[in-house]
């Protein structure tokens, strides 16, 4: 009985994924912070069922790129063609409240996203035993799992993740890998900034080639070399 119910729910979720199955295509995008251009002519494609790993040195604009794609800040050049409502974003910060329990938090986000995936999110990251634990009493890794569970809860098809494996232990990483495989299998896609090893196989995207002002950077390096 319980299994049949769960089967129904996942079928429902799958149909929603198929309806929203979409390719994120970016070309000629210029992004930056506080008016300063960091990356220009950014171009890549993120097809349903694939994952993309974004690489680049510190301060290059990886987080800024994710924030721009999520719709939190406008691009400085070019336009975004995808529907911002297809995107869910897991930022650096876990966005948990110290006084709300794990279950309350995920139920709240399920209501905000108008989905019924709160239980799926809890199950995906093995948070069952932490249901009643307030956010303030979670360890860094547990907070991260809870934040990643929000992606499952969101029911959205394009996941943008900023260093998802930070603070995760081996168990957490394998849970993340399993969740990502399911998500990609259902026609979703993921784009992550990652410095360590990847949770799953993904295409690499090196942002270094899009750096906006390599001339200035080279001059700086030259100056240092002269000194």
């Amino acid at each position: 009985m319980c299994c049949s119910l769960r089967g129904g729910a996942s079928r429902l979720r799958r149909s929603r994924y198929e309806a929203r199955r979409m390719t994120l295509t970016v070309s000629g995008l210029g992004i930056g912070r506080t008016g300063r251009l960091l990356l220009r002519d950014v171009a890549f494609e993120l097809a349903p069922g694939t994952a993309l790993s974004v690489r680049g040195k510190n301060g290059l604009g990886k987080t800024t790129l994710l924030r721009t794609l999520a719709g939190l800040q406008p691009p400085l050049e070019g336009t975004l063609s995808h529907d911002p409502d297809a995107v869910a974003y897991a930022a650096h910060s876990d966005a948990l409240k110290a006084t709300l329990t794990v279950e309350e938090t995920l139920r709240f986000w399920a209501q905000i996203y108008a989905t019924d995936n709160a239980a799926a999110g809890i199950a995906a990251y093995g948070l069952d035993h932490l249901r009643a634990r307030p956010g303030g009493e979670l360890s860094a890794g547990q907070r991260r799992r809870c934040a990643l569970a929000r992606l499952v809860v969101s029911g959205r098809s394009i996941w943008l993740m900023d260093e998802p494996t930070a603070a995760l232990d081996a168990d957490g990483k394998s849970q993340l890998a399993a969740v990502l495989r399911t998500h990609l299998g259902q026609g979703g896609s993921a784009m992550m900034v990652n410095h360590g090893e990847h949770p799953i196989e993904c295409t690499q995207l090196d942002l270094g080639v899009f750096e906006a002002a390599p001339e200035a950077a080279r001059l700086d390096a030259f100056g240092e070399a002269v000194e």
């Binding site: 995107v87 974003y89 996203y113 969101s154």
Partner: peptide, 12 residues
């Protein structure tokens, strides 16, 4: 401070 505002802004 805890990033909730950003998360909310994505949806609401």
């Amino acid at each position: 401070e805890d990033g909730s505002l950003e998360q909310l802004a994505l949806v609401v």
